[in-house]
Design a protein around this nucleic acid. Structure first.
Length: 266
DNA sequence: ATGGTAGCAAAGCTA
């Protein structure tokens, strides 16, 4: 069995104690990280190696930064989206490990509808769509996981109003742009295992704003996803969101999302 | 609610 997880840690250095605790409990084979908020020089490499992981990362000072941690050897590393050349922001890394091609992606937040940052988000999703098409054409076991900063469906946000009001993370434009990526032929691993989350009273979230007691009031969003190629989806065994990490001292605003695959996937 | 909190880095930006 292979267990793969994605987690926006919101600073790897600050989150190290919580991450170590979580790894001891969940023990993933592959971890896709976002928002490292550091360069390679200040990344806690030894701590990760002590946990048993090989590391490939794309760092950036203060903002963004993505990594792939793997207990398997890591090959074919791609730094940055090939379809978005000269992007100064560290938001994408891809590699082949444990028989699966994986990518850790940090889609821009977008800040405000129709702002410059929003346009950058739309361009990023367009580029991701193009690259997803190329990857899927290889017909491999593939998982593109990360913080997509988009709630795909109305059940992926705490309140229907936020969708009606076209708020950031929930707007029609963002959901259409994400759908364009997914419709290349990707499967939402978590939703496959948990179709019950489509029901109003069984929603599950992966992100809660630090502000205004969002977690306490469960005003969350499901914006962290593990999208699978058909070959990977065939072997999905189980999936979950480790929301209890959000209750610990100095938590990330995101919870880890994980997916287990039967051995034949790789 | 043009705030509310957190992280980086040292004031304001990003989320």
């Amino acid at each position: 069995m292979t267990l793969i997880a994605t987690w926006n840690v919101n600073s790897i250095r600050t989150r190290l104690p919580i991450l170590e605790k979580w790894v001891a409990h969940r023990n993933p084979d592959i971890i896709l990280l976002q928002e490292l908020k550091c360069m390679e020089e200040t990344f806690p490499l030894t701590a990760m190696e002590d946990l048993g992981y090989n590391v490939e990362m794309l760092g950036q000072k203060s903002y963004n930064g993505v990594a792939i941690l793997s207990k398997y050897p890591i090959e074919d590393v791609v730094h940055g989206l090939p379809t978005l050349s000269n992007d100064p922001q560290a938001r994408y890394i891809e590699a082949f490990c444990g028989g699966i091609r994986v990518a850790s992606v940090y889609v821009p937040n977008g800040q405000k509808i129709d702002s410059d940052k929003f346009n950058y988000k739309m361009n990023f999703l367009k580029a991701l769509k193009k690259h997803a098409r190329a990857l899927l054409a290889q017909d491999e076991s593939l998982i593109i996981g990360g913080d997509y900063n988009v709630a795909p469906d109305l059940c992926d946000g705490h309140n229907p109003d936020i969708f009606e009001k076209n708020r950031i993370l929930c707007s029609l434009q963002e959901r259409e742009a994400l759908k364009n990526v997914i419709n290349e032929g990707l499967i939402d691993g978590y939703r496959v295992v948990h179709p019950e989350t489509l029901h109003e009273n069984q929603k599950k979230f992966s992100w809660w704003d630090y502000r205004s007691g969002s977690y306490e009031n469960n005003k969350g969003y499901r914006i962290d996803h593990l999208y699978c190629s058909p070959k990977a989806a065939d072997f999905i065994q189980n999936s979950g969101i480790d929301i209890e990490t959000r209750l610990q001292e100095r938590p990330s605003d995101h919870a880890p999302v994980w997916l287990s695959l039967t051995p034949t996937a790789n």
